[in-house]
């Protein structure tokens, strides 16, 4: 870990301004991801801006019937919120499928969205990794890639985004609210928030340097039956091989997003027209153009089978 300086921010705008002022600054929330990465010198911020004192930990109704989730709401609290449990079940289930109780008590909404990949080569600083060290190459391509992306990857990187929460937010059409160093605020649709790796896998989101997440808003409830199914090698405390977040209406229409398959939560709205025809038809479009590796080709049939099982469950 490199030495760093530390400050506590007093307001969101101040935090963003401070982040721009101090080169190499980073925000710290729960610290459950950032601190691990700092110990391994994968992240080497020169300055930490602690955002935990900011008044961003409320869950409040929005005028149009949705919910505004503060950036600092802990994963545990969000999963247990009665409105979330009632109206956005897929989100509550996704949160509870992630990490462990202890981690969820610390992990925040913004931190969860911004957690970094679990590609094993990203963690081994003796190995080349374009995401960790741009231009150094990608050790995972041609290496051990069981966990990695099957779609949307590039020649530079085939990592996945590991969040469960973000997959549910994607299927719920959430919006990420931010404030920039110049004080301007903006709303970024979750679809545009995470990026595909392309040539710049180290740039993972639409945020500009210093931009602070203040909240995530959910539109008014989508109704239907909401399911989150996470498939993994052990029963708990493991990242998804594949996960399916689905909102299924009585008439069989609905939406679906996938985790564990791409550099971002994976959703193809056009594929959802095929929902009433079943999993095979949806998956064919969702994963059209997939380029799995030898190690992870199983994820394609796994997505289809998991989705089929989810649709069966949703039908009751």
């Amino acid at each position: 870990m490199r030495t760093f300086t530390y400050e506590r921010a007093n307001s969101p705008a101040e935090a963003a301004a401070a982040a721009e002022r101090m080169p190499g600054a980073k925000f710290i929330a729960g610290g459950t991801n950032l601190l691990d990465l700092m110990k391994l010198e994968i992240e080497t911020p020169a300055h930490l801006i602690d955002v935990n004192g900011l008044d961003l930990d409320g869950v409040d109704p929005t005028p149009d019937g949705g919910l505004r989730i503060g950036a600092l709401v802990r994963n545990t609290d969000l999963a247990a919120d009665p409105r979330v449990r009632r109206d956005y079940g897929v989100l509550s289930r996704a949160l509870l499928a992630g990490a462990s109780g202890q981690l969820r008590n610390k992990a925040t909404t913004a931190g969860n969205l911004l957690q970094r990949t679990r590609c094993p080569y990203f963690y081994d600083t003796a190995q080349p990794c374009n995401k960790r060290q741009p231009g150094s190459g990608c050790a995972a391509i041609g290496g051990f890639s069981r966990q990695l992306a099957v779609i949307g990857g590039s020649e530079a990187c085939i990592a996945t985004h590991p969040s469960d929460m973000a997959v549910a937010m994607r299927v719920l059409d959430a919006t990420v609210e931010t404030v920039r160093p110049d004080g301007a605020t903006r709303s970024i649709p979750i679809a545009d928030f995470h990026r595909l790796p392309g040539d710049t896998p180290h740039i993972e989101t639409a945020l500009v340097p210093g931009e602070l997440i203040t909240a995530v808003t959910l539109p008014k409830p989508a109704g239907g039956t909401q399911v989150y199914r996470k498939v993994r090698d052990r029963a708990s405390y493991a990242f998804a091989l594949v996960s399916v977040a689905a909102v299924v209406q009585r008439d069989g229409s609905g939406r679906v997003a996938l985790g564990g398959v791409a550099h971002k939560p994976w959703r193809v709205e056009a594929a959802e027209a095929a929902m009433p025809q079943g999993a095979k038809a949806v998956t064919a479009q969702l994963l059209a153009g997939a380029k799995p590796t030898h190690d992870n080709a199983f994820k394609l049939p796994l997505v289809e089978r998991t989705l089929a099982s989810v649709l069966t469950e949703a039908k009751g």
Binding site: P120, Y123, G143, F144, D233, R234, A235, S236
Partner: peptide, 21 residues
């Protein structure tokens, strides 16, 4: 990793052992 001759999943997050569940 058969190219480079090492065990890639060299931490407890990636080498999975049973949990209580």
């Amino acid at each position: 990793d058969k190219r480079n001759g090492f065990f890639v999943n060299h931490d407890l997050a990636s080498y999975e052992v049973p949990v209580h569940a």
